[in-house]
Design a protein around this nucleic acid. Structure first.
Lengths: 216, 216
DNA sequence: CATTATATATGACAAGGTGTCATTTGTCAA
DNA sequence: TTGACAAATGACACCTTGTCATATATAATG
């Protein structure tokens, strides 16, 4: 059943804001894209630890020296690619929230469908997993992406019926659940059952874990 | 406020069951411990990617060749150390559940206190973070530790009042929340406020996100 | 005790990685 | 044509890892 993937992911990536050098930005955009594409492919293909700058520069046909004038190192490059994709993720997320009039439950139902579709369409699987992993425990709570995403969609969330206590926490909880769902979906060959399971979980998140009578 | 830690973690670790070679197990236990201690220290000190087998064998006073007869590589070593510590974590967790008669809410309240105490006492912080990270998104859902822990404590959880839908998911949700709380606590200098926040979240998990009237 | 078998230890080595830098090449403006 | 600045280059120093033929210790046996 679950025979693939004997590899797990917890990766060390230097934090901080990532930006390629001006030199890179000045580059002919064809050249930029070539490098980005090659790199993306590398990140999709091998484990993060095994990503090799050597291989990247070979495939992109640039010299070692050039690479290091563009990016300080592989973390830097990865961070940049992430940054580029983040925008898409952010935009999609917000769009969904708006289209659902801020309703959390429905938004997260829909997000699952939207993202799994997106992944399927673009063969992003491996790379997107990395992106999602980027939103992991640490990230999620302390670092930019998770928090930034929240800030970005915050206003699109309908809060009248929600307990005020900690909207950001709630958001992360749902996000976490979504990521698990998506990752499962990406790996599974039976999406519809994963989808069903996912929806049940969203319900638990909404209404709590206790049976009716026990509530509060 | 949150000025430390510019580093985030998403790490690549090979999965699979980790076991040192018989040769290592045969070793005089003083020698074993020496190596383990040195390694542990390395893992505590530097980012996972930067952990160097070189440094470890130097500090442990063993030859390169020996190391590689004990463990296949650094992932293997890390996995083993994790394994050793996991037992402790498992035991503690179960103990707490039993002492709370399986009540989820109270168990997770207590787990927070127990673990933060444990960490404080043992200067595990950096290493335990790694352990906790080991239980991250992927792990949590697909791999041994998270699932295994669940199986281990499963029977100690009182389920009469819980919606049956997906106990494991609920468990992971609470766990996830606990890990976030602990990590925050480890980094913070105001544990009691983190603790308070944590408890509020546990309540959300128990009773859902909606205000009274909106429920179901 | 001598001899053989087996377990353990060793460090030189190949293969490959990273980041730097003095130098070359390209480009544009005066 | 010349000078000034931007970009590209690849050899280099220095690191890492995992392997393997060889040396050494330990045990087992005739």
């Amino acid at each position: 059943m679950n025979n693939c993937m004997t590899t797990c992911h917890i990766v060390d990536i230097k934090g901080g804001v990532t930006m390629p050098s001006q030199t890179f930005l000045n580059l002919d955009s064809r050249k930029q894209n070539k490098l980005l594409e090659v790199a993306m492919n590398e990140f999709k293909t091998v484990r993060y630890t095994e990503v090799s700058v050597n291989r990247i520069i070979q495939n992109a046909n640039i010299s070692r020296g050039s690479f290091y004038t563009y990016f300080t190192d592989k973390d830097d490059l990865f961070g940049y690619i992430l940054e580029l994709n983040k925008k898409k993720v952010f935009a999609l997320t917000k769009e969904v929230f708006l289209s659902c009039r801020g309703d959390i439950k429905n938004s997260f139902f829909k997000l699952f469908d939207v993202f799994t579709k997106e992944i399927e369409d673009h063969d992003f699987s491996r790379f997107l997993k990395n992106i999602f992993l980027y939103f992991n425990i640490y990230k999620e709570k302390f670092d930019r992406p998770g928090h930034a995403l929240f800030l970005y969609v915050k206003d699109s969330i309908a809060t009248e019926e929600i307990k005020a206590s900690d909207l950001e926490f709630i958001f992360h909880l749902f996000m976490h659940n979504l990521l698990i769902g998506i990752t499962e979906a990406v790996r599974s060959n039976n999406i519809s059952s994963i989808r069903e399971q996912y929806r049940r979980k969203v319900n638990i998140l909404c209404y709590g874990i206790y049976k009716e009578d026990k509530r509060c």
